[in-house]
Design a protein around this nucleic acid. Structure first.
Length: 556
RNA sequence: GCGCCCGUAGCUCAGCUGGAUAGAGCAUCGGAUUUCUAAUCCGAGGGCCACAGGUUCGAAUCCUGUCGGGCGUACCA
């Protein structure tokens, strides 16, 4: 079935064309917006287009509205039971029963594919997220990014795109060198040597433990006299830390298609290639033995160093090469999920990609706002270097994957998220996730009861004499909106629409459950119809929970 | 100083590209279970949508300014 909003836009546009000569106005199809009215009497969908036309052309909205309403009404479009005009200028649409039941049958037939659409402009998207430094375990900030990235990926797939999920491992550069140094110092301390960490080193307890482990395993013994002992330590440490990151992500049910190593980039010719390309466009210059990129030409505040005087590339330069590599792999759209601290980094990166002839329209940076941790209503200072972080793993162990995921998705990504640790456990008891899961479990139980009562489930709708009760209508209409919500969440990058929708759907189901008894041996047709409604609801709850990565329990 | 995010009920937040009487959950108070799981449902109270201007038929939503909170402003990543 086509998207209802598009259908309404088309219908309105075609009828406006018919009457526009009479009034003498012009219309732009893009101006036709469709919204969900707040009150039932205003219909299922509504458009205020008449008000816009009246304003732009200084005409009377009442006259145009009446005419438009009449025109659409008389066409008797199968989608609409009725079309009404309300002052001061709203055209309100009431969906027909036939279309709603047809949609239900579609839910039943399509199952997990319900909500998926064929996109007229499909993209081959690379979405990169988390990409935390491999200098320590993942923390709760990464947990938010991981959740959002994972769910966005699934939403994009439903919206008809092709997706690759990638994690960029910064396994080269200054920070990992400091990591190796920190390890060596800890190892020496374990061996009784006197040496101290400096401020810039990593102070976390996990380094000390890892140093102990390296000694215990005899790995240090093997390399201690090598010339490149620090490199060997680095390799050992990175492997351990990266694996632990992977383990936690796995525990969180997040799978990446690709793990891209920064070190592989440094070994390749891509840096050279990028340098040549940018140089050819006269976008580079040298000053005090450093090479600068003219990012100011692209709206950046100042030009940025890409090669230092000691000829090492800056992080920025390597990142340019990385994104250039993404382009060369044939992606038509690049999406990066960054933290708010990287906000100022956007202009230069966009500039670099424009310079490499990759229109910045296809490079999208999504900023996921920070997570603040509160303990006893006070903010917890987090620093990876100081080791005062709350780990993603602790979070999972504490409140569980389901509740964490729901919690992170529940609010818009541009909002700061205050994570109250004292409340976390409490949250896990009356977390809204259980409200949704409970609706799911209830439905499953209805089917178990049907089995017990030897009621055969036919999965058919008896449409003829079916008088819809209020709760049934609400439920059916809500299910109708699922695909629209998916599309909206994907297009506007609003994963929070998903949990909100599921909460609504679950709530309406609970109402339905209270008011409309499903299993009734005396009323076969009503029983079958309500079983069908329950099954469709179950399917959509299942689909939604699956996108969120939250389990759908059959029993609670 | 400049840039970005946030400011909506006691608390946590929804409010889509401006729309028709500002919504949920938690908390508080009061009801509902001989019938498919009460982790549920129904009802009540609670708001100058931070403040001040502007745009217009219409603003929580857009623009400008002010105040408050956070983040950033590297040859770190």
């Amino acid at each position: 079935m086509d998207n209802i909003k598009d259908i309404i836009v088309q219908v309105v546009a075609s009828h406006l064309k018919q009457i526009k000569k009479e009034f003498g106005f012009k219309i732009n199809e893009d101006d036709i917006t469709v919204e969900l009215p707040k009150k039932e009497e205003y219909g299922d969908y509504s458009t205020p287009i008449v008000l816009k036309i009246a304003r732009d052309n200084k005409l009377n909205p009442i006259e145009i509205g009446a005419k438009l309403q009449k025109s659409i009404s008389e066409a008797k479009h199968p989608y609409f039971k009725s079309v009404e005009f309300y002052k001061p200028g709203f055209i309100n649409f009431f969906i027909s029963k036939e279309i709603l039941t047809k949609n239900l049958e579609e839910v039943y037939l399509l199952k997990e594919k319900y909500g998926r659409r064929k996109n007229p402009h499909p993209e081959k998207i690379l979405i990169e997220f988390v990409s935390a430094n491999p200098t320590g375990p993942l923390n709760v900030v990464s947990a938010r990014a991981a959740t959002v990235g994972d769910v966005l990926s699934k939403l994009f797939i439903l919206d008809g795109h092709q997706i690759t999920k990638e994690y960029y491992i910064n396994d080269a550069g200054r920070q990992v060198n400091l990591l190796a140094e920190s390890m060596l110092i800890r190892i020496k301390q374990h061996l009784g040597e006197k040496c101290e960490l400096k401020d810039e080193h990593y102070h976390g307890e996990y380094i000390s433990e890892l140093a102990r482990q390296m000694l215990d395993e005899g790995e240090f013994e093997k390399i201690k006299n090598d010339q490149d002992v620090l490199t060997k330590i680095k390799e050992y440490t990175l492997e351990k830390l990266i694996n632990s990151q992977k383990d936690v992500l796995k525990k969180y049910n997040i799978e990446f298609d690709n793990w891209f190593h920064e070190s592989s980039l440094r070994k390749s010719d891509l840096l050279k290639e990028c340098h040549q390309l940018l140089d050819k466009k006269k976008l580079l210059y040298k000053e005090e033995d450093k090479t600068f990129f003219r990012s100011t030409l692209f709206g950046d505040e100042k030009d940025r160093v890409i090669i230092r005087e000691d000829e090492t590339p800056t992080y920025f330069f390597v990142d340019i090469a990385y994104h250039y590599n993404k382009i060369k792999r044939g992606f038509t759209c690049l999406i990066d999920l960054w933290g708010p601290d990287h906000d100022g980094y956007i202009p230069r990166m966009k500039g670099a990609l424009s310079a490499l002839d990759y229109g910045d329209a296809k490079f999208k940076v999504v900023i996921i706002q920070q997570v603040n941790l509160l303990e006893k209503s006070r903010k917890v200072q987090m620093s990876k270097r100081l080791g005062t972080i709350v780990l993603m793993e602790d979070l999972i162990n504490d409140i569980g994957v389901d509740a964490s995921r729901f919690f992170f998705l529940h609010r818009s990504i541009s909002s700061h998220l205050d994570f109250d640790l004292d409340l976390a456990r409490k949250q896990s008891e009356d977390n809204p996730v259980f409200y949704v899961q409970y609706a799911y479990a209830r439905i499953c139980n209805i089917f178990k009861q049907a089995e017990n009562k030897k009621i055969k489930v036919e999965y058919t709708l008896y449409k003829n004499d079916w008088e819809w009760k209020e709760e049934e209508v609400k439920l059916i209409k809500k299910m109708f909106d699922f695909p629209l919500m998916i599309q909206q969440a994907a297009e506007n990058i609003q994963p929070n629409l998903l949990p909100n929708y599921l909460l609504d759907l679950a709530g309406i189901f609970h109402q339905f459950y209270t008011q409309c008894r499903v299993l009734d041996e005396k009323q076969k047709e009503i029983t079958q119809n309500r079983l069908f409604l329950s099954e469709c609801t179950r399917q959509i709850l299942y689909n939604g929970l699956k996108i969120m990565g939250v389990t759908a329990p059959e029993r609670m």
